[in-house]
Amino acid sequence: MAANNIDEVVDGLAGIVRDSVRDADRAGYFAALYRQVTVEVRRGIHTGLFDDGPRMDRFDTLFGNRYFDAYDAWRRDRTGPRCWREAFGLLHDPDTIIVQHLMLGVNAHINLDLAISAADTSPGEAIHALKRDFLLINDILARAVLAVQGAVGSVSPYLWLLDKFGGRTDEQILDFSIRRSRQEAWDNALLLAGQSGARRERTIDLLDARAALLARLIARPGGLVRPAIQLIQSTENKDVSTVIEHLDRALDGPPSP
């Protein structure tokens, strides 16, 4: 699938969510989070939040299409960027918990796709004018992530163990990962905006390799996190379709019991 504007990105994500609910496909976990973030970005465009609404529409469309391309490549023949292959390859793994699926999608989309999309939107010196709008998305992401993580807690009641054993007692798990990664994505966007040809492709390949390594660390953490994940998994809601629908309503109001 290929989107021509942010409305089509939202529609495409909604379609993946619907298909995932129908097929009990864990791809719907990240798609539900991403759809809600995109809806909030679209609202920001319509309300004049960004300095340049049409530019943000182009940016979000390029960003969305990178996800759609990776999703389609995996469905077609198990190809695509390495970091996305790591994420999609765990969709049928019953030992991977809900928040890991979300973090794997966040990792691939932000640590690889975001910088490329920003540089494609505003190449060369034009990248500097994009910075304020780029960073404004942090606030949108923070709101969406807090809502979605609250929803995850409703279907994964022992999720708090990741904070306890992962050493992040004062930060939300997903919010921590996203904020740190987005700053790095901006630095990488500045780099890519000034590159072309083989040099640019080499940089993208290195970003993909790094994101793939991070994906493996997310999927198979060491130390006390591993037994914590096993306990979390044993208590999670195992009805994939129900979990997707629950996550997809996260921004509609407080999580249901």
Results as ranks from 00 to 15, higher is better:
R78M: 14
P81M: 10
Y71E: 04
H92V: 14
R78C: 07
L62R: 14
G80L: 04
Y71I: 01
R75T: 06
A73S: 14
L114P: 06
P81S: 13
R76G: 12
F68C: 05
G105S: 10
Y67R: 05
R76T: 14
D57Q: 06
Q100R: 13
G105D: 05
Y71K: 05
D69K: 08
N107Y: 03
M56H: 02
L62P: 05
L90R: 14
Y71G: 00
N65L: 06
Y67W: 13
Y71D: 03
A87G: 10
D113F: 01
Q100T: 14
I98L: 15
L62T: 11
Y71N: 06
D69A: 12
A108S: 15
R66E: 04
D93P: 05
L114G: 05
G105Q: 08
I110V: 13
A87R: 01
L112R: 07
A73M: 07
H101N: 11
A73E: 04
L91R: 12
G89M: 05
F63P: 00
L62Q: 10
P94R: 13
T79S: 13
D60H: 11
D72N: 14
D113W: 01
F68Y: 12
V99T: 15
D93H: 04
H92M: 15
A70I: 00
W84L: 03
M56L: 09
M56A: 02
R76N: 15
G64N: 11
L112V: 08
A108D: 02
W74K: 02
L91G: 12
I110G: 03
D72A: 15
R85W: 02
N65Q: 10
A70N: 05
D93A: 11
D77L: 00
E86R: 00
L104H: 06
R58P: 07
A70Y: 00
D57T: 02
W74F: 15
V106S: 11
R78I: 08
R82D: 14
I98Q: 10
V106D: 07
R76Y: 08
P81G: 10
L114S: 08
V106N: 13
I97Q: 10
L114D: 04
F88T: 00
G64Q: 07
R85S: 06
D113Q: 04
G64D: 09
D77Q: 07
V99F: 12
F63A: 01
D69C: 03
H101P: 11
P94Y: 11
V99D: 12
F88R: 00
C83H: 08
F68G: 01
